[in-house]
Each structure stands twice: as structure tokens, then as C-alpha cells.
Design a protein around this nucleic acid. Structure first.
Lengths: 195, 195
DNA sequence: CGACTGACCAAAATAACAATTCGGTCAGTC
DNA sequence: GACTGACCGAATTGTTATTTTGGTCAGTCG
């Protein structure tokens, strides 16, 4: 659809912005930067996006869409809930690059508390939780797991996942991928009680 | 032991400091303030404490000691692990005033990132985790719960507790005390798997 | 004496102001 | 008419003046 002679400006801008946000954070990326990275005049950016905030939203939306796609193509409706959960975690854990934007943003929130970064992260969190919640609800309806409030359960799952990976590096050494999976299954699915 | 005519300066100072730290945070508390609150000359404070940091440490240590005492007197070795865990949570949840210092400090860390407040909170977290970890280890040794790394387990427990109480007020309405207990038992002890 | 005080000091925090950067515009080019 | 980049004012950052605060100690009082 796209000739070599007519480069897709919008795509150039979006990709440059994605790289820049992931590398320098929200505050750290300037529109001049994005323009230069995209090899585009600054004004061109504003023909596609009303302002920096809208550009950022588009990138975040893309991230959410990509994550959802990865999850969707990993989930196999024929498999048990716990297996799907593990498989999705597995793939998400592998996707270091996809994470880098989220990692950079949460670092930015911690260090300088940029409101937009915080907002973006909250949007991402909401999206993840509602995605998980949907699957939790289905699993509960099918009787694959015990009945439980889906949103709260999804929230707890996310918190456990983060506790095992991102946070708590003070306490335990960063766990390997397999350890994370094993521990997550242990604490979240199986529980501490004797079986 | 203490006559009415010879008020216990040290105690006056400690109590004034505890109130002030809980009300205004670490940074918000000035030594002049503490002196005035304690009805004591500022110099007097320094006959007991080398500096503001040491005064703060004493208050934090006191908090930890009190929490531990509450926990200890609640734990009944004859009861099962899960019951003791629930009972301690129950009492700690009631102790809103004891919490207020910790609440104020974490708020301070979030808003202005005072290093001392951060440090104090970390000390508190470490103390709580090591306390829980000891009991987890005992329970595991006695075969009351499944074998697991005590420190990591304690860490996960604390994170779940916080997710159900302090954090995540964006997502779910603040849970009532009984709901917190029920949910904690559900997610932490029993697990999502069918029994 | 010695417990206690509060005026005092240097250092750190804050406010006030100047210099720079950055998001956003638009006249002009190709 | 798609695209550019010099340009503008608002916002951020750097700098200096002012105030606040942790900590000291000569002096008071019992």
C-alpha cells in the first residue's frame, strides 16, 4: 500500500515516540527529539496528534493492544485456567522489550512523580486487571477455580506477580523465570494450606 | 517510682516526639516543636538523644516493640497457624493509632520522598517480615502448612495484606475488617484451586 | 553541682528572581 | 497541501537572597 517514495509519516512518528518514551520516560522526551528521531519536522507531529499527551496515549494504547494480543494468542480455551495463566505469565516475562516502557515509566513515577506517567501506568494496570478479571470470571463460572470476586482476584494476582518480579529486590535476589512461575503457582493457585 | 515533683523528661520528650512524627511526619517535625510540645527546653532533648535521627529511631523502635508485644500476646502456640495469623491480623487492624505513624510516613515518602522516612519504613517492614517469617518457619516445621521459604512467604503475606488494606483503594472500596480477614484467608492460605 | 534553658550559629531548606528549555503555532517552502 | 523550522509564551531549571532548623553551650536556678 505504501510506496518507497511516500514514507508513512504517522508510523515514523509513532515508532520514534515509542522508542523515546521507553528510553527517556515521559518528561525526558521532547517533541523536538521525537521529530528528529522520526526525521520529520516538528509541525508534522501535530498534524497527527493534537499534543504530547495524545501522542503518549496512542503509544500506551498500542502497548496495551500488543499485550492483549500476546495474551490472546497464548490462551488455549481447552486448557485449564491455571495452565493458561502460567503460559501467559511465561510469555509476558519473556517480553522484556515490551516491558521496558512500563519499567521506565514506573521508575519515572518513583523518582520524579510525573503525573502523566502515573496516569499512563494506571491505565495499563486497569487494562491488565480487567483482562485477567474476565478470564478469572470465566474460570470461576466453569467451576475450574473457586468462586471469587473477579476484579479483586485479578488485582491480587497482579500484586503477587509484581512482588515476585519487579518489587522486593531488596528482600530476595531477583528470582529466575522458572522460580517466579513456581512461586506464583504456589502462592496464588495452591495456597499455603496442606492439601 | 516517679514523684509528681520530678516529671520524667525523657518520657515527656518521647511522647511528644511520637505524637509529632505521627502528625507531621519526619520532615514536618522540628526539634523546637517537640521541645514545646514536651514543655521542655530544646537542649534537654539532646541530653537524651544525640540528634533528631536518634530520636526518630527510638520512636520507631518503640513502635516495633509494641507491635511485637501485641502479636506475641495474641499468639497461642496451641492454636493452628492460620488461626493465629488471623487473630494477629485482627488485632493489628484494630490498632489504628499505632498505624498512624506508619501511614503518615508512607504518605511522606510518596509525596516528598524524605529519606529518613523511607529508611524507617524499611526497618519496620524488615522487622515485620522477620517476625512473620519466624512463625512461618515454625508452622512449616510442625507440618501445619506446606514447606516454603519463610522470608519470601512472609514478604508475600505482607504484600497481600497491604494490597487488601492500604493500597488499592483506587480499585476496590476499602474493605471492612471482616472482609479483609476472609479475603486474606482465601488468597493466602487456601488458594484459588478447587479443594 | 548539675539538670535545665533558650539565645545563638552554621547548614540546610525555601523563596524570589533570572536564564533556559520545551510544547505548540503558523508563515512560508517545495 | 503536506511539510518544515523559526518563533512565542509558559513552564522548567539554575542562581542568589532570605528564612528556618538541627544542634551547641554559656548561663540560670534549685
Amino acid at each position: 500500500m505504501q510506496e518507497r517514495e511516500t514514507p508513512d509519516r504517522r508510523k515514523q512518528v509513532a515508532e520514534a515516540a515509542a522508542r523515546s518514551f521507553a528510553t527517556f520516560g515521559y518528561k525526558g522526551t521532547t517533541m523536538d527529539q521525537v521529530a528528529k528521531l522520526a526525521q520529520v519536522g516538528k509541525g508534522t507531529i501535530y498534524t497527527f496528534y493534537a499534543n504530547k499527551e495524545e501522542l503518549f496515549d496512542e503509544i500506551m494504547t498500542g502497548l496495551i493492544r500488543d499485550l492483549r494480543a500476546v495474551a490472546d494468542e497464548t490462551v488455549d480455551p481447552k486448557l485449564p485456567f491455571a495452565d493458561n495463566l502460567m503460559n501467559v505469565l511465561h510469555r509476558v516475562l519473556d517480553f522484556r522489550d515490551r516491558h521496558s516502557l512500563a519499567v521506565k515509566l514506573s521508575q519515572e513515577v518513583r523518582d520524579i512523580g510525573t503525573p502523566m506517567a502515573k496516569e499512563g501506568l494506571e491505565t495499563l494496570e486497569k487494562a491488565i486487571i480487567s483482562y485477567i478479571a474476565r478470564h478469572v470470571k470465566e474460570a470461576a463460572d466453569k467451576g475450574e477455580i473457586r468462586p471469587c470476586p473477579p476484579e479483586l482476584t485479578a488485582y491480587m494476582m497482579l500484586k503477587m506477580y509484581l512482588a515476585l518480579t519487579a518489587e522486593g529486590r531488596h528482600l530476595h535476589e531477583p528470582l529466575g523465570k522458572d522460580e517466579v512461575l513456581e512461586r506464583f503457582r504456589f502462592y496464588c493457585i495452591e495456597g499455603l494450606a496442606l492439601r
